[in-house]
C-alpha cells in the first residue's frame, strides 16, 4: 500500500511537469450523449444538457481548453484509463467499485434517488418483473431485491418494456424518468419508494491525474460557493430537485 502511494506521488510530480511543459493543455471530456437531462444530443447534433453547460463552465474557471467526446457507456471507463480522453462527465454515480479503478471529483450532483415507474398504481414493483438498463447500479439493486430483473441494453428500451407490458415496472434514475412520466399523460406513474443509490454524481478521472482532479475540484467548489451550480441544477432538473 505504501508503495502504491509513493508511486502515485511520484507520478503526480511528473504529470505536473508534463502539464507545465504542454502549456495550453487540451482536456478531452468523455460523455455518453444518451441520458437526458444530464447529457444528450440536441437537434443540431451537438452534445447538450446539464453536464455540457456545467463542464464548459468548469473548464472556464479552471482555465482549460476542453473538447467533448462521445463514447459508448459500456466502454467509457476502459477508454478513460487507456487515455483516449481525460475525464468522464456522464451522469456517473460515485460508487466504491468504480472508485477502485478511477478517481472521482467531489460530487456536482447530490446523491440521487432512483425510482420505480409503472403503467398503473397497482403494479407489483416488489415481486413482479422490473426492467433496468444492463450494467447499471439500478440493475444490481433489482438483482438483489425480490423482483425478477429483466435487462435491456438502453434506457429507452426499459421504458418501452413497461409501455408494452413486458415488465411491470422500470427502475431508473428519478431524474431520467421524471420528464417521461410528466409527458406521458398518465400512461406512466411513479410507484413505490424512492431508493437512494450511489454517492452523488461526480466527474471521473484517471487515478494518476491528481493535478487535473485538483483543478476541477476547485472549480466545483467555487461554483457551489457562488450558487451557480444550484442555478444550473434548477434550470435542468426543475424546481423540486435537490440542491447544495
Amino acid at each position: 500500500m505504501k508503495k502504491l502511494i509513493l508511486t502515485t506521488a511520484a507520478l503526480a510530480l511528473s504529470a505536473g511537469m508534463a502539464f507545465a511543459a504542454g502549456h495550453s493543455q487540451t482536456v478531452r471530456m468523455g460523455t455518453e450523449g444518451a441520458y437526458p437531462p444530464y447529457n444528450f444530443i440536441n437537434d443540431a447534433g451537438e452534445i447538450d444538457g446539464f453536464e455540457r453547460e456545467l463542464g464548459d463552465e468548469l473548464c472556464k474557471r479552471a482555465e482549460l481548453t476542453c473538447e467533448w467526446v462521445k463514447n459508448d457507456w459500456d466502454s467509457i471507463i476502459p477508454n478513460l484509463v487507456s487515455g483516449n480522453y481525460d475525464t468522464i462527465i456522464a451522469g456517473m454515480s460515485i460508487t466504491a467499485e468504480r472508485d477502485e479503478v478511477i478517481d472521482f471529483t467531489q460530487d456536482y450532483f447530490p446523491p440521487t434517488a432512483s425510482a420505480y415507474a409503472a403503467a398503473s398504481d397497482a403494479a407489483d414493483w416488489e415481486n413482479g418483473v422490473v426492467a433496468a438498463q444492463t450494467a447499471t447500479i439500478q440493475a444490481g439493486h433489482i438483482a438483489e431485491s425480490g423482483a425478477a430483473l429483466v435487462e435491456f441494453a438502453t434506457p429507452e428500451e426499459t421504458v418501452a418494456a413497461v409501455r408494452n407490458g413486458e415488465a411491470d415496472a422500470v427502475f431508473a434514475d428519478r431524474d431520467y424518468l421524471a420528464p417521461l412520466v410528466d409527458e406521458s399523460g398518465g400512461a406512466l406513474v411513479f410507484i413505490g419508494p424512492d431508493v437512494p443509490l450511489g454517492g452523488g454524481v461526480g466527474m471521473g478521472l484517471r487515478e494518476s491525474d491528481t493535478e487535473l482532479k485538483a483543478k476541477f475540484d476547485a472549480a466545483i467548489t467555487s461554483m457551489k460557493a457562488d450558487g451557480t451550480l444550484n442555478t444550473l441544477l434548477v434550470k435542468w432538473f426543475g424546481e423540486g430537485t435537490a440542491t447544495y
Binding site: 459500456d74 476502459p78 484509463v81 450494467a135 429483466v150 435491456f152 441494453a153 418494456a161
Partner: peptide, 28 residues
C-alpha cells in the same frame, strides 16, 4: 442478448457474462 432480446434474471449467454465481468472489473 447483446442487442436483440432482454436477459431475464441475469440468465444470459457467454457474451452477457463476459460483459458483466468487463463492466464490474473495468478490464476488458
Amino acid at each position: 442478448f447483446f442487442s436483440g432480446f432482454p436477459a431475464w434474471q441475469q440468465r444470459g449467454d457467454a457474451l452477457y457474462y463476459a460483459s458483466y465481468f468487463a463492466d464490474k472489473t473495468f478490464n476488458p
